[in-house]
Amino acid sequence: MPTTGLVVTIEGDEPSIAIATGVLGALAGVTLGTLHGARCPVVVETDDLAGHERVLQAVQRVSGVLACELAFADFSDVQDPAGGRVGPRREGVQHGSS
């Protein structure tokens, strides 16, 4: 269950920031902290890395989000961090061990 603490910077005036934080807060797996000017602490908690990735992308796509930076990430109970579906690497680059 990966957990991430983010700092999201939002552009615009107070009403614009309020709209953006409203959208952010409605995302599944997202918990907002107290806004500090244009910077909003955000915690993302999901069941797996792939789901985490989707939420992080959604956070960055929210209108008004200027920057999204990491403060903390925990993946201690992710079973296979290198797993997940990804395309094949170049054929022949893998080296056999025997």
Partner: peptide, 20 residues
């Protein structure tokens, strides 16, 4: 533990956001 990790994540993000 999960709750602890979540609180830790929020504390870290808040400290950075507030430049504490």
């Amino acid at each position: 533990r999960r709750e602890f990790v979540k609180l830790t994540a929020m504390a870290a993000a808040t400290a950075a956001a507030a430049r504490l």
